[in-house]
């Protein structure tokens, strides 16, 4: 089937090889070929955008231009990378003057932004290119209706005119595995990742409020599609025992881990042992 150029970023490979491996294994099951983009730069994160807008657009335009030469769409598993690439793509597509200025710079590297290769989040490829029906047919170990809360992540959904992603994409993808989607009051709220370098206490409070809202609504597990959100909800959860005296015991799984298990991959293939809050209890929830 189709081939994609993967922009993996630096956070996923450095901190969450379980996300990277499960994404690759799931893609393989659907006959998708994922090829790592070569010689690309770090997206810089929203913090680079805050201090150096021109530099941020330039590094990301460079990545987009390299992808253009592969003639495949760019796929990324990280909301931060997706947000950066999609925003710069949108800017360069809609602002000719800016694009000309950027291309004048890129020319020195022998590159040109044309915008033929579109930046896409991996979940959107699953939803649009593979499709719910094809996924459903391959599910061999459906879940038993266990309640999973979704943390979408701000830069996946907003600004909507730029990201072009609606919440249904991920909620439908969770439901197709046989799990139930738990609705909770703070579903839109930020995990706090961006503000971490400026105000750590605030960032932790945001993560804590989010976890509490999920837990209060009856979630047994939660899913994320971004390494920064995972830092906040999984890793920080361990620290909350001390700072807030609260223990949520809410396992946080990357979506491809959940889908992978339902497709029959085993726990090691999706790297389940690497999740910080023990995620193995999910293995008790297959319906057959």
């Amino acid at each position: 089937m189709s081939t994609y150029s993967v922009y993996i970023g630096c956070s996923v490979p450095a901190n969450y090889p379980n996300y990277e491996a499960s994404m690759y294994k799931v893609a393989e099951l659907f006959g998708l070929t994922l090829e790592y983009l070569e010689d690309v730069a770090c997206c810089g994160s929203p913090n680079l955008r805050a201090m150096d807008y021109w530099g941020w657009t330039l590094v990301n335009a460079r990545t987009l231009a390299i992808a253009d030469s592969t003639e495949h769409d760019i796929v990324t598993p990280c909301n931060g990378c997706f947000g950066s690439l999609k925003d710069v793509y949108h800017l360069l597509k809609s602002d000719t003057d800016y694009r000309n200025r950027i291309n004048a710079e890129l020319e020195r590297e022998g590159l040109e932004f044309r915008g033929t290769s579109k930046p896409r989040h991996f979940i959107e490829v699953l939803y649009t290119d593979v499709g719910l029906e094809s996924i459903r047919k391959k599910i061999t170990k459906p879940f038993d209706g266990i309640g999973i809360a979704i943390h979408y992540g701000c830069h996946l959904l907003r600004p909507g005119d730029v990201t072009e992603i609606t919440p249904e994409i991920l909620s439908e993808l969770v439901r197709v595995t046989g799990a139930d989607v738990v609705e909770y009051a703070l579903w839109k709220q930020c995990c706090g990742a961006t503000v971490l370098p400026v105000d750590e206490a605030l960032a932790i409070r945001l993560a804590r409020d989010k976890l509490k809202s999920m837990k209060d609504a009856g979630a047994a597990f939660a899913t994320v599609v971004c390494p920064a959100c995972c830092n906040q909800l999984d890793l920080q959860q361990l620290g909350l025992r001390e700072s807030y005296g609260e223990q949520f015991d809410l396992p946080i799984l990357f979506y491809p881990q959940i889908l992978g298990l339902a497709l029959g991959l085993d726990e090691d293939e999706v790297g389940l042992g690497m999740n910080r809050v023990p995620a193995k209890p999910i293995l008790q929830h297959f319906s057959k």
Binding site: I8, Y36, D39, A41, C42, G44, D52, V59, R62
Partner: peptide
């Protein structure tokens, strides 16, 4: 980290 060019970041920024 697959495919990452640290030189490109240093050069551009």
């Amino acid at each position: 980290v697959p495919g990452l060019s640290t030189d490109a970041v240093k050069r551009v920024l």
